[in-house]
Amino acid sequence: MQPGGLPLAARAEDRDGLPLDVLYVPLGPVLSAWPAGLTLQLTLQGDVIQDLQVDTRHFAAKDSVRAFWNVPWHRALAGDEVPVAEAARHRAAAHLDSLARFLYVAGDEGGALIAARLRDEALAGQTADRLLQQVATLERRLVRGRLLDRVTRGVGRIEPQRAVEIELSGPALRASNGGGGRPRPATALGEGDARSRWHQWLAETKQALQQAADGGSATMSTKGRFEGPRGVLGQHTAPSRALLGAICETLVGQELAVARLIVASFDPDVAELDEAGEG
């Protein structure tokens, strides 16, 4: 029976073994403050996510388009001489972009506007010292009253061991207290939850801006591992692939209410998948 062309909800056993209506609800591919082109096909029972499927076909690029946020590192991989300061500035802008989306989803519209403005100023060439000051102001705003901490604590937790197993890299790995390379900034918490991840972004933004301020005219070495804003580049899989894996793991069993918050706290970039020949 399909009243109005819509199939009626089917039933299946939920996590407690009770038969419950099953509802299929897509998240994406277009939502405000959502990774453009990502679709999550959710299977809901009540408002609990029982299963999900990732689909990134919608916006798949026809030609190999470079992900905007990875441009400096790809140029270095290709042998170009890229100034350290320029890459650091790009990294800071990328983290501020992720932060703006996360804050919007967390309902802090004011903080989201500030982060987005700082991102634009970083790309437009505002001095690193001035940006550092403003990021510090933003940080004071976010930790004030510890409200955002309370809202994001324990959300979408990835244990350190698991973070390594699913090949997370970059800020998401360090937020799970793993992965060396870069010293872990003091304010990051390393608990592997959404709270640790936004603190990590903020800390690494400051670190990158400091680097941009000190950078001088040094260029990135053309050897070794290159870490983009979301993780190590030039490997067989894109960092965002691991982030999607983490999303799949943490979303099942959660309520619809926190799904968006978890996705925003990992913030995968679909363009990155396209350039790695995936998607």
Binding site: G107, D108, L147, V258
Partner: peptide, 12 residues
């Protein structure tokens, strides 16, 4: 208040 605080989580 809209521009100062993040949204509260209802369960909390």
């Amino acid at each position: 208040a809209r521009w100062i605080w993040p949204r509260l989580r209802l369960d909390r």
